[in-house]
Design a protein around this nucleic acid. Sequence first.
DNA 1: CCTATTTACTTTAGGTACTAAAATAAATAA
DNA 2: TTATTTATTTTAGTACCTAAAGTAAATAGG
Lengths: 408, 408
Amino acid sequence: MALPSTDTSRHDNTLAVIRTLRDRGPAARVDLGTLNGISSATVTSISAELLQQGLITERPPEAPRPNGRGRPKTLIELAPNAACVVCVKLSINEIQLVVGDFAGQVRHSEHHTVSTLTLNADDLEALLEDKISALCTRQLTGFQRLAGICLAVQGVVSSQSGTIIWSPALSFRNAPISARLAKRFHCSVLLENDANCIASLLAAQPAYADCPNLVVIMLGYGIGMSVLISGVPFLGANGSAAEFGHSKYQPDGALCACGRRGCIEAYASDYALYRAAADPLELPVGDSAHPSEQQMQALTQLALHGNPVAKRIYAEAGRALGVGIANVLALFNPDLVLITGSGVRGFDAMQTAMHGAIDNALVAELRGTTRIESCAWDRDMTCMGGIAIALNATDSQTLLDSQTAREA
Amino acid sequence: MALPSTDTSRHDNTLAVIRTLRDRGPAARVDLGTLNGISSATVTSISAELLQQGLITERPPEAPRPNGRGRPKTLIELAPNAACVVCVKLSINEIQLVVGDFAGQVRHSEHHTVSTLTLNADDLEALLEDKISALCTRQLTGFQRLAGICLAVQGVVSSQSGTIIWSPALSFRNAPISARLAKRFHCSVLLENDANCIASLLAAQPAYADCPNLVVIMLGYGIGMSVLISGVPFLGANGSAAEFGHSKYQPDGALCACGRRGCIEAYASDYALYRAAADPLELPVGDSAHPSEQQMQALTQLALHGNPVAKRIYAEAGRALGVGIANVLALFNPDLVLITGSGVRGFDAMQTAMHGAIDNALVAELRGTTRIESCAWDRDMTCMGGIAIALNATDSQTLLDSQTAREA
DNA sequence: CCTATTTACTTTAGGTACTAAAATAAATAA
DNA sequence: TTATTTATTTTAGTACCTAAAGTAAATAGG
C-alpha cells in the first residue's frame, strides 16, 4: 500500500558503502558498519543486494591470515568491471583520455596532440566523439556499462548547463558540449573545471583529511583555482566561480590574456613570466605566448641561480600571487591553500616574496591559521580526479541500472 | 527492541513544519504537507504532537470565510509564547537588545549608549549579563523558556568557538564570550557576525528567493560582508571568512583601521571618506576617526550636489568598491550582490565609478550575469536577522525540551 | 430543506528500513 | 576437545511513512 520513494535512507546507506569500498579498498561488513554509523545487520542486508546485482564480490579468505582470534573477516570489494568511466582532459594542443573502473583504478590512459585552437565547436565535438568511440571499441570491452564521461577543461565552464564558456585551449566560446555527448554515448556527461578535478583528488588524500575547507591554486599556462567547502567543490551561480587568475593585483596593471589589466595571471602565469623576461634576457621569442616546458624550466633555473632580472620577475610574480592569496584568505579563510600545477616549478623563486606580500597585506587576525603549501605536480592528476568525480556522480544511476537489470 | 535514534525523518519533518509556520504564518495541514513534500496524514500526526507539547495552536475558524466549497481549512500556527530568543547587537558605543517570540515576531527592542571601547573583556561580560538579566525580569515573563541568545558583533568572530576575535567596537581581542553567557542563562548562545545576520534576513525575503548564492556587503563605519551559498552563510575555517573590507584595492595604498594598507575599507568606509575629505574641505575634525551620521550625510550631500572634491573622493571609493566586487565576482560568482548598511547613503555618489571599475576589471565571461543592487538600510535589520538565526538554531532543542516536559 | 459535491482532516492497513539481541559460523587458545 | 573470541546472519520489534478509506464540514443547486 505504501510506496515510500521519499525514504532515502537505504539508498544513502548503499551509496555510503560503495564509496567507502572505493576510498578504502576491500573491507569487512562489520567495519563498513562502524565507518558509516550503521549496524552490521544493515550492512549484511545491503551487501546481499549488491552481491546479487554484481556490483561487489566477496574476496576469498587469504591462506596465511595473521589475525587474532575469532571468526575471520570476510572482505567485500567493488567488482571493478561493474562499470567504467572515461575522463577526457582538454588542454592547449593536447587531449588526454583515461579509463577508470568501478573501483576507481586507472585502466588505460592515452594522449593525443591536437591543435585545439584551430577547432570550431563542431570539430571539437566530432573529435571527442571519435576518440571516445575508438576507446569504447578498444578498451571498454569487459565492462558492464559505461557509467559516465567527465570532461576536464581549463577555463570557465558551466557544470550545470554543460557549456564551455571560455577556455584558453579553444578559440570559440559558449559551446554546449555535454548534452551532445550524452546523447551520443547514452550516459551522463559531466563538465568540470580542471582545477576542480585536482582539488577533489587532493581532498580525498589522507594527508589533507583535516582540511575540509581547501583552496587549490593551479599555476601553469594560466592560473586556475578550486575551492572545496566542507569537501564539496564550490561552484558559483553559473559554475564560473573561483577564477583566481583574473582577480586583481594592480588595477590597470599588466595586460592579461583575458584582455583586461592587472590580473594575477598577468604576473604569475607561464606566459606572463616569459613575456616579462624575453626582452631583457634576450630569450628566444618563437611563440612567446605559449612558452614550452623547456623554456620555462630554463627561465626558472635562471631565477633560482641568481640571475637578477629573472629573480626580480619571479619576485614580482610572488607578490602578485601573495596579494591574490591574501584576498582569498580574507574572503574564504580556508584551512589550507595548496599550490600546484606545472608552474610550481617556479614556486621556490616566488615563495619569499609571496609570503612577504601576504604578511604585508593582512594582520594576524585576518591572516588566520591557514597553511600555505605547494604540492608536486603530475599531469595525470586531473584525469584521476575526473574519474573520481564521475564515479561519485554516477553511483546512484549505476545502482538503479543494476537493480532494474536484475529484476528483468 | 529497536531504538532507532539514527532515524531522523520524523525530527526533520517536524522542524520543517515549524519553520514553514514561522516563515509563512498560519497554515492548514494539507498545505504544510504540500509545501514540505510529505503526506497530510503525516502532518496530522506531527501537528497532534506539537499541539500536545504546546508549541502550536489551532486557530479558531474565522466567521466570514470567503473560501469556495468543501470543508474549510483548519489553520495551525506557532504558539508565540512557547519560547523566546534575545538578540544583542554590539556596535561602536551602542548596544541594542531585541526580544523575539517563537513565531519570529519582535516583541521588544531597546538601545543603550555605552562607551564600548573603554571596556575590558570582563566588563563586557558583566554588562551583557546585566542587560540581559534585566530584560529577563521585565520582558521575558509569559514565555515558556528562553531558547537562545544571539550576539551580533561587528568584526571577526568565531561562531564555532564563541570567541570575538577582533571587533572595531572593542579594544581587546580574542574574548571567549558565548560559553560564559550560556552558563549564566542556561541556553545556547550564538555568536554571529553582523553582516551574516543581515544576509540571513535578506535571503529569507521573497524578493531574493531566486538568489541562493547571495553576497551582502555592508557599508558603514567599517565594511563587512556575508556570503550565502545555497542560502547557508559561509563561514571559513575559523569563522572569519568574508572579510571583504580588508581585501585589497591597491597594495601599499591608503592606511586602514586594521593597520595595513590598501584595503577596500581604507577607501570606501565612513572613516576613510571623512578622512579624505576633512582636510581639503576644511570639515570639523572632532573625532574624525568616528564621524557622526550628520557629518557623513553632509559630506554625501556635497558629493551629490557637485562639490568636485567630494565627488572625486566618492568616485575613488566607488572604484575601490568596484575592484573589490570584481574580485568577489571572479571568486564567488554569486547570483546577486546586495549593498546595504548605513553607508548606502553615499551609494549614488559611488555607483558610476563602481560599475566602471567592475567593467574595466572583468571581461563579460567572468563578469557573468550577477546583479548588483543596493538595499535601503534599517538599523533594526541586524537584530531581526539574529532572531531568525537564533530561532532556527534552537528549534531542535526547544522541541526536545517540550517533549521531555510533556512526558514528565 | 435536502442531497450531491467538494475539500480537509483522520484513521486504517500495509510497507520499508532500521536496530538490538539471539543464533550461527569460524577461527584461536588452552 | 572445549572455551573464548569475533564476524555475520537471522529474528523480533519499532518508528516512520504513505495510499486509501472513512469522516467532517462546508457550498451549490434543486
